[in-house]
């Protein structure tokens, strides 16, 4: 349980060029997911590059959220949910029954659409998961808390009221606190499910800048409905679509290419539809 205590790996510099040479971190192979009888998505094959921002776009109900929850096995929580296929994250076979999901979820953080800090103080929100993952030392804890709050630009805003309820923060601050809570566990990857869509435009911009600042150090997979945002921040993009009631991955590639010279006519229609 020591990995959190060690300094974070910094091999991936904070710059776009790292993504010029794709270096797969996650490999998804013919992944399908059913909720009981209903199929959410089928046959998704996708590779996600290390240190890059990959945007997942598509209409509502095409299985984007379901896809994210496969990567950290949150699907285990839904009894009717059946996942088939193969996911490899850094040589780890994610779907294998013997995989340690606690450790997996520490390595793969997740941010939800609606900010969801626990009804605890700001400090306890960060400290509680750290303690659970084995960090006990007081000074180590408070330095981890400070580091992660600084990383999301929240430190100066909250350093004098760490013991106040987290739910008293504004929506944007709560979302950044949730990101800090994940970052405190020193993850390698972040799954973000429409992290800005419940926020006002200003907070949304702040969170977007924060996500961009994390590029290089973390592998980020972000679902967004905001195509302009996807264009601004993503290195890679993947478009999900609903065909016959089942979600499919219809196009994937570099974000620039997908948005400017889409190969699939559906992609063209989707991005121009939103634009116009």
């Amino acid at each position: 349980m020591t990995p959190i205590a060690e300094p974070r790996p910094q091999h991936w510099p904070e710059a776009k060029p790292a993504c010029c040479k794709p270096h797969p971190f996650v490999d998804v192979d013919r992944l399908s997911l059913h909720y009981g009888e209903k199929s959410a998505f089928q046959d998704v094959t996708l590779s996600i590059s290390r240190g890059c921002i990959t945007a997942l776009v598509g209409p509502s109900g095409c299985g984007k959220t379901s896809f994210l929850t496969c990567l950290n096995r949150l699907t285990d929580l839904i009894p009717t949910c059946v996942v088939a296929g193969r996911i490899t994250i850094d040589k780890l076979d994610v779907l294998a029954p013997q995989t340690d999901v606690i450790q997996l979820r520490r390595r793969i953080g997740m941010i939800f659409q609606k900010p969801n800090p626990f009804p605890l103080s700001i400090r306890r929100n960060l400290e509680f998961p750290l303690r659970e993952h084995g960090m006990r030392d007081r000074t180590q804890l408070s330095s981890a808390i400070e580091t992660s709050l600084r990383e999301v630009g929240l430190w100066d805003e909250v350093k004098d009221r760490l013991d106040f309820p987290a739910l008293a923060l504004s929506g944007g601050q709560q979302q950044r606190l949730c990101i800090a809570r994940s970052l405190a566990l020193a993850p390698e990857m972040l799954l973000m499910d429409e992290p800005c869509s419940a926020l006002d435009p200003i907070s949304s911009g702040v969170v977007e800048d924060l996500i961009v600042s994390l590029r290089g150090r973390y592998t980020i997979l972000i679902v967004t409905h905001n195509l302009a945002q996807a264009r601004r921040i993503a290195d890679y993009a993947a478009l999900f679509w609903v065909q016959n009631g089942i979600g499919r991955l219809i196009e994937t590639g570099r974000a620039k290419q997908l948005f400017e010279e889409p190969r699939n006519p559906l992609t063209t229609a989707y991005i121009s539809g939103i634009r116009g």
Binding site: L77, I102, M110, F112, K114, N116, F118, P129, H133, L185
Partner: peptide, 14 residues
């Protein structure tokens, strides 16, 4: 709220 359960699980809490 059920999102406490989800976010707790996503943080790797038992």
């Amino acid at each position: 709220p059920s999102n406490y359960r989800l976010s707790a699980a996503a943080l790797g809490l038992s």
